[in-house]
Design a protein around this nucleic acid. Sequence first.
DNA 1: CAAATTTGTCTATTAATCTAGACAACTACA
DNA 2: TGTAGTTGTCTAGATTAATAGACAAATTTG
Lengths: 245, 245
Amino acid sequence: MAQQKPVERHSGVSLWRQIADRIRVSIADGEFRETGRLPPAFDLAERFGVNRHTVRAALAFLAEEGLVESIQGHGTVIVGGRQLTLPISKRTRFSAGLGDQASSVSTRLLRSGELPASLEVATLLQIAPEQPVTEVEEVGYVDGRPVSCSQHFFPVERFPDIARHIAATGSITRAFAACGLPDYLRHSTEVSARHADARERELMQLSPGAIVLEARAINTDLEGRPVQCSRTRFSADRISLKMTA
Amino acid sequence: MAQQKPVERHSGVSLWRQIADRIRVSIADGEFRETGRLPPAFDLAERFGVNRHTVRAALAFLAEEGLVESIQGHGTVIVGGRQLTLPISKRTRFSAGLGDQASSVSTRLLRSGELPASLEVATLLQIAPEQPVTEVEEVGYVDGRPVSCSQHFFPVERFPDIARHIAATGSITRAFAACGLPDYLRHSTEVSARHADARERELMQLSPGAIVLEARAINTDLEGRPVQCSRTRFSADRISLKMTA
DNA sequence: CAAATTTGTCTATTAATCTAGACAACTACA
DNA sequence: TGTAGTTGTCTAGATTAATAGACAAATTTG
């Protein structure tokens, strides 16, 4: 197989890492769907213009991620790599949005507590700085695998028992309902992307260098008053976000 | 200064590269706006837990990018580089959305041509597969620096001269107007994140390992008929996207 | 069974990255 | 003027990344 795009040397990114990233993209694009496995390491080495051992390092990295599995004498088969899409609209709900794409969707409460609002949170919730807010951290799972981790902030004054309800019902939507708010709207969602930090990698079982999509959102009641602001990081390998007007 | 987050070793990304990436983000967040320059290399080294020479490699890389400039005896001053936010709403327009955040916003037409619609494009535009579509590729610039590259598809049947109008006016909005469509709406935007490929890095002058935000969008006329679908990749270092309902 | 294919392991060598320390060169400021 | 603070340069050594080759081990195929 001829060499496609040469790999970049002296870029600060090791060759095995560049190769792993490109193979990951190829898999996501469905390039090897016919055979279900990667070309032999020797061919990949020729294609990328590197030594076979360098390709082996890349494959070991992808195997660590759980994306491929190398079998001696057989080849390297593709194990996972399906991407889910979370719809973002005026009625964005985590579980409901992913429910029809997976057999199980759940969230796990990490911790919760009260603290005075930072300037940023106060601004977003339209309350005075230092007013108490409830902070809730949780991890989202799809089919048993973690795909997101998030921080949520609620004004204590209006929802004094929200943490208890979230713990009891396992759902923010149901917790709001229990607090007398049967419906709410997604006011805005700001999306950015960056490399995952150590904590995110731990919570979502990501490998170093993994990418997260960070969504900063504000939810309001039907009158437009903010009831929640949140910061959710999604594993970009597993989730994409779809905004619909 | 105490160490914040330790740098990651054996991740496939060299330490100087990680440090450069983090300093770039800090600059974009306005962390050093008060002084207009970076802390001394010795302090940065302590903060990241590495040797001063490693920090120097990172600063040399950022200087190469034109983001900072080191002056002997004086310090390392910040030359450019803040992050822009592109609002995504029903009336998303590239130039108008960024216009008030920068002194100059422009797009450069890379190429255009007609081709039969792929299955995906035909589905998005709600036309029959193999029907001709106009493909337009362009690069977006803010203050003279490239921040995005995009592919746009338009149905030839309805807008036969769109490519010519885009070339003449330099604007899709004005080209639509010239084709008899004074207004149109953003129907949906799907956002994902991944590492930039070689072509994206070339077009946007990104370094290896850079992250792109990819937005796949559909625009419709006021009756809801698709008039355009597009795939735009933004440099995640320079642009974030803000969805507003 | 035998040959071809493919991954796994081992050793050795070269190049790139990171650390460490010393000192020179330049700037700012009291 | 001279002293503190900062960047620039140099040497040396340790660690990591990449190349190269040979052969073992497992699977598939004829």
